[in-house]
Simulated assay, not measured.
Amino acid sequence: MSILDGLAANISDAMSDVFRDSILNVPGHRISDNQGGWKAGEPTSYPCKALVDDYSDYRRAAVGIPANDRMILILGHGLPVEPQPGHTITAEGRDWQIVSVSRDPAGAAWEVQGR
Rank of each mutant, 00 (worst) to 15 (best):
S2R: 11
I3T: 13
L4M: 12
L7M: 14
L7P: 02
A8K: 03
A9W: 10
A9Y: 08
A9P: 05
N10M: 10
S12L: 03
S12H: 11
A14C: 07
S16R: 14
S16P: 05
S16N: 14
V18I: 13
V18C: 09
D21F: 07
S22N: 09
S22W: 01
I23H: 03
I23R: 04
I23S: 06
L24H: 10
L24S: 14
N25K: 14
V26G: 06
V26C: 01
H29Q: 09
R30N: 13
R30W: 06
R30D: 10
I31M: 06
D33P: 00
D33E: 03
N34G: 04
G37F: 02
G37E: 05
A40N: 11
A40L: 12
A40Y: 08
G41I: 00
E42H: 07
E42C: 05
P43L: 03
T44E: 00
S45K: 10
S45E: 08
Y46F: 04
Y46H: 08
P47D: 05
C48R: 04
K49A: 00
K49R: 11
V52S: 11
V52M: 14
V52K: 13
D53E: 15
S56W: 07
S56K: 13
Y58E: 11
Y58H: 14
R59E: 07
R59A: 06
R60W: 06
I65F: 01
I65R: 03
I65W: 03
I65A: 02
P66C: 09
A67I: 08
N68C: 13
N68M: 09
D69H: 06
R70E: 13
M71A: 15
L73S: 15
L73T: 15
L73G: 14
I74N: 05
I74T: 07
G76E: 04
H77K: 13
H77W: 13
H77Q: 15
P80G: 00
E82N: 03
Q84W: 06
Q84E: 09
Q84I: 07
P85L: 08
P85W: 07
T88M: 06
T90F: 13
A91E: 00
A91W: 02
D95V: 15
W96A: 03
W96R: 08
Q97K: 12
Q97D: 09
I98E: 00
I98N: 02
I98G: 00
V99G: 04
S100L: 10
V101Y: 08
V101T: 10
S102Q: 09
R103A: 15
D104E: 11
D104K: 13
D104Y: 11
P105W: 01
G107E: 00
E111Y: 07
V112L: 07
V112E: 05
